[in-house]
């Protein structure tokens, strides 16, 4: 991505810390990092083992992350999961998850970037209160919101509708994204906008063709967060949707180790399937994550 490289003072070379001169320092560093990485990765390796072992046999006291016997039964079982009526539940739920998450991302980016732009660039009555309110909304406990949210969606006729979930998820993601984006927008010099004004650009053209392209790292992080909010959520999806064919994938993943049954093998396989898209996004966007997330906090 070749954007965000304007001459802002924030873009400076990484600070140089002199590393230890002796090779032992480097070895010690790698030993520490290797150990931490191993501890971090180990639970995931165990999940992989459980998923790849037949049935629940992967749930064994062994410390060895390599399965004794490799079988894709659990994956097959998860992917072919169907309802008693013969609906291919996995396929439906995967589609639901994908559609809802992508729609949430699009809506989330739209809502968050426009609001953040106004908060960053305009001075208007209600600006301070609005910013404060966004911050404070992060403190609202979810339990408090469940019943009212249910009633509101019902009143709006959005219960049992994917669009209802999309709107809810997008608003959940907004406050954090707005603050992050606003911080990023604040670092874009005002001169650029004035220059565009002189070039004859309208306010919207400036937003669309100058500010957004220059903020790609922060917009990418916003996209990631909106997508993640929608892709990982299951409590609301479970509460607001009635039919299993309308559920999202996480609802099913959770159900494998829910109150009724404990199917660790299927759970592990489903977890891996659910986590893969998010991990792929993280890998693709991790550079942006480092820059996009903090440029707001650290100016100059």
């Amino acid at each position: 991505m070749n954007t965000g490289d304007y001459e802002a003072p924030a873009v400076t070379k990484p600070a140089k810390i002199k590393s230890g001169k002796s090779p032992w320092g480097s070895i010690a560093t790698h030993a520490v990092l290797g150990f931490v990485t191993l501890v971090t990765m180990y639970p995931l390796l165990i999940v992989l083992r459980i998923a790849l072992s037949p049935g629940d046999s992967g749930m064994s006291p062994s410390l060895n992350p390599i399965p004794r016997e490799i079988s894709f039964d659990n994956f097959v079982a998860v992917v072919t999961n169907s309802s008693p009526q013969g609906d291919w539940l996995f396929g439906r739920q995967l589609l639901n998850s994908a559609v809802i998450s992508i729609a949430t991302t699009v809506l989330g980016i739209f809502l968050a970037t426009t609001a953040a732009y106004a908060f960053s660039r305009f001075r208007f009555p209600g600006r301070k209160a609005g910013l404060m309110a966004f911050l404070v909304s992060q403190m609202f406990p979810g339990v408090l919101m469940m019943v009212p949210l249910y009633l509101i969606l019902e009143a709006l006729g959005l219960l049992n509708a994917s669009f209802g979930l999309v709107v809810v998820y997008a608003t959940i993601a907004i406050p954090f994204c707005v603050w992050m984006l606003k911080g990023y927008f604040d670092t874009i010099p005002k001169d650029l906008e004035e220059s565009a004004i002189m070039d004859g650009a309208s306010q919207f053209t400036i937003f669309w063709r100058i500010i957004l392209p220059l903020s790609m790292p922060a917009v990418a992080v916003t996209a990631l967060f909106s997508f993640m909010t929608a892709w990982n959520e299951f409590v609301l999806a479970f509460t607001f949707m009635e039919e299993p064919t309308a559920f999202t994938l996480p609802v099913t993943v959770y159900s494998y180790v829910g109150e009724q049954s404990v199917e660790w093998g299927k759970f592990a396989a489903a977890s891996i399937i659910v986590s893969i898209p998010i991990m792929a996004l993280f890998f693709a966007l991790q550079k942006n994550l480092v820059g996009g997330l903090t440029s707001g906090g650290v100016k100059g």
Partner: peptide
């Protein structure tokens, strides 16, 4: 300055309807 508010209103409506109103209702409950 109506043009300014065009940018905030979509997000604000979403937040009010789906975050602040539920919160107020929760408080009432």
């Amino acid at each position: 300055q109506p043009r300014t508010y065009v940018y905030v209103v979509p997000a604000m409506i979403g937040m009010i309807v789906l975050v602040f109103v539920p919160f107020a209702m929760g408080v009432a409950i």
